[in-house]
């Protein structure tokens, strides 16, 4: 289903939903994040796959987020994520720290429809000590010794949210090798995807495009949002806008600065035009 705008996609997301989002090196839909802020979403639960960046920080700052599960939150070269740090300090955010492969594994369990996955490592860390939902069991196949191993429960997000280069006539999307987006689409109950453009045809009938496509089986709705990943890079199509993120990081150091940034960049006239 092709909808008219990122705002129409955001309207499908109820308050309290669990949203899986890729980080700044892997096609987040900043367009949907901004639309969720415009729609005044509340109590969202975010899952960083496997870490979180710019889109997560603006959603937290705008008061849309109650809980965050992730392996790190960062603006990369622009430093720590300021609104995330403030919300954590002020007790406005429930944070569940994970470690990157644990998040991939929990989603893969959902992809397969099995209750858990096993993962090496983690034992002896305070991440495990603070995750009562993760269990350590003896490897049942071990031949000598106990061989403790961590079990991670399947995690099924309500929505996968990301940006792709293009959508086709069949509702398939194409984003190349950023396959963590495929994993979250496969694992989630629904997937909302912004794209740069619409292309006639069927990516799955093209041997060169099919490996970088995600089948419409998993895609609930798409909308065109040109430069929908900005300020994040989109594959080889446009680069990371470091100046924009650095400007954001400076502005968002304070609540007032962040509010002014939101007014300009999310609620401002330019955004309204783009959303129409």
């Amino acid at each position: 289903m092709m909808l008219p705008s990122a705002d129409a996609l955001a309207a499908l997301v109820p308050d309290g939903a669990l949203l899986a989002m890729p980080p700044d090196n892997s096609l987040p839909s900043v367009a949907i994040a901004k639309a969720l802020i415009r729609r005044g979403a509340r109590n969202l639960r975010l899952l960083g796959v496997p870490v979180s960046g710019f889109a997560t920080d603006i959603l937290i700052g705008a008061g849309c987020v109650a809980e965050l599960e992730t392996s790190a939150v960062s603006l990369g070269e622009a430093g720590f994520a300021p609104r995330f740090s403030a919300a954590l300090r002020e007790g406005r955010l429930i944070l569940r720290d994970a470690t990157c492969p644990a998040i991939h594994s929990m989603l893969q369990a959902s992809e397969k429809g099995i209750p858990f996955m096993a993962l090496r490592g983690i034992i002896g860390s305070d991440i495990l000590a603070n995750r009562p939902d993760w269990k350590v069991v003896p490897n049942p196949f071990a031949e000598d010794g106990e061989d403790p191993i961590v079990l991670l429960p399947a995690r099924q997000p309500d929505f996968a949210i990301f940006h792709a280069a293009m959508a086709d006539s069949e509702g398939n999307v194409w984003l190349g090798r950023r396959r963590e987006c495929a994993t979250i689409a496969h694992a989630s109950k629904a997937a909302l995807v912004t794209v740069e453009r619409f292309v006639e045809g069927n990516f799955l009938e093209n041997e060169k495009l099919a490996p970088g496509a995600i089948s419409s089986t998993y895609i609930t709705a798409t909308a065109i949002a040109e430069r929908g990943a900005h300020p994040v890079a989109l594959l080889d199509e446009y680069g990371f806008d470091a100046a924009y993120v650095a400007d954001y990081a400076r502005a968002a150091k304070t609540e007032e600065g962040f509010r002014a940034w939101l007014d300009r960049e999310v609620f401002g006239a330019a955004q309204k035009v783009a959303a129409e």
């Binding site: 496997p50 870490v51 992730t70 392996s71 790190a72 939150v73 960062s74 720590f80 994520a81 995330f84 740090s85 954590l88 300090r89 944070l95 720290d97 994970a98 470690t99 990157c100 492969p101 644990a102 993962l119 090496r120 490592g121 983690i122 860390s125 305070d126 991440i127 495990l128 603070n130």
Partner: peptide, 19 residues
């Protein structure tokens, strides 16, 4: 926990890679 003094970005993959 989870860093109520100074919060760093997070563990990334370290809890796995280090092992």
């Amino acid at each position: 926990w989870p860093g109520m003094g100074v919060r760093f970005p997070g563990s990334f993959g370290s809890a796995f890679m280090y092992f």
